[in-house]
Amino acid sequence: MNNNKENIEILNDKALVENLISKQVLNNYEAKQFEVPANYFQQFETQVLSKVGKENKAKKSSFFIPKWGQIAVAASFFTIIATTYLWLQSNDHEQTVASNISIQEITTTEIDAYVNENEAIAEIDWQAEINKETSNLENINAHLIKDTNNTQ
């Protein structure tokens, strides 16, 4: 009963369209819509199935990392970043400390070792320099003795 009513409604609506446009023109239009290349639907099936297969594989591989695995990866990243940050911080600190050490605090052994390792510095005639400094000191001493004697 309901179906009959529906069918009559559909026929009425179709009649409204056919009053406006001839049935032949509408049929020609519909026939044009049905034109498809030969074997199109067989090829379509193959294309869809291959695409679906690829998508399925991609989906499977992306879900292959379990949740605990994803957490482990995230934790590793965090550890690497934190370690790098702390290492850089401590490196900066060491450099600051180094720049604050004065020459007096360095032992002779360390200076000797440094000089031995650096040829340019090693080429200086240290004995001549020492003799020069010693004679300067002796001159100063002589002057001081002379001045003391004069005042007495």
Partner: peptide
Amino acid sequence: HQQKVYFQIKRMVSEHADADDVAQQVWI
């Protein structure tokens, strides 16, 4: 169902190549 789906799309987009693309998207 592929033919009905294809023709429903074809009526809307007119060109076969477009209907083919949309129909593939639908089935995916």
